[in-house]
């Protein structure tokens, strides 16, 4: 198990050892979707997202 910092809220995330570049994970603290930019060491950035009006 490795760790990385959430790019949105700064919380520490526990990551699986078989993490892959490009994988999308979500932060358990703030819920942000994060893209794995690098795996050694792990680096996370906010994942790009489609514009959405959430039903409004």
């Amino acid at each position: 198990m490795t760790e990385a910092e959430c790019a949105e809220c700064g919380a520490t995330l526990d990551l699986a050892d078989d993490l892959e570049t490009g994988e999308i994970i979500d932060c358990g603290t703030c819920g942000a979707e994060l893209e794995v930019i690098d795996v050694n060491p792990p680096v996370l950035d906010r994942a790009p997202e489609l514009e959405e009006d959430w039903g409004e």
Binding site: E8, C9, D26, C27, T29, C30, G31, A32, E33, E49, W54
Partner: peptide, 11 residues
């Protein structure tokens, strides 16, 4: 709980 712009429907 802190809910501030994360993923999913309830942001």
């Amino acid at each position: 709980r802190m809910v501030a712009g994360g993923g999913g429907v309830y942001r």
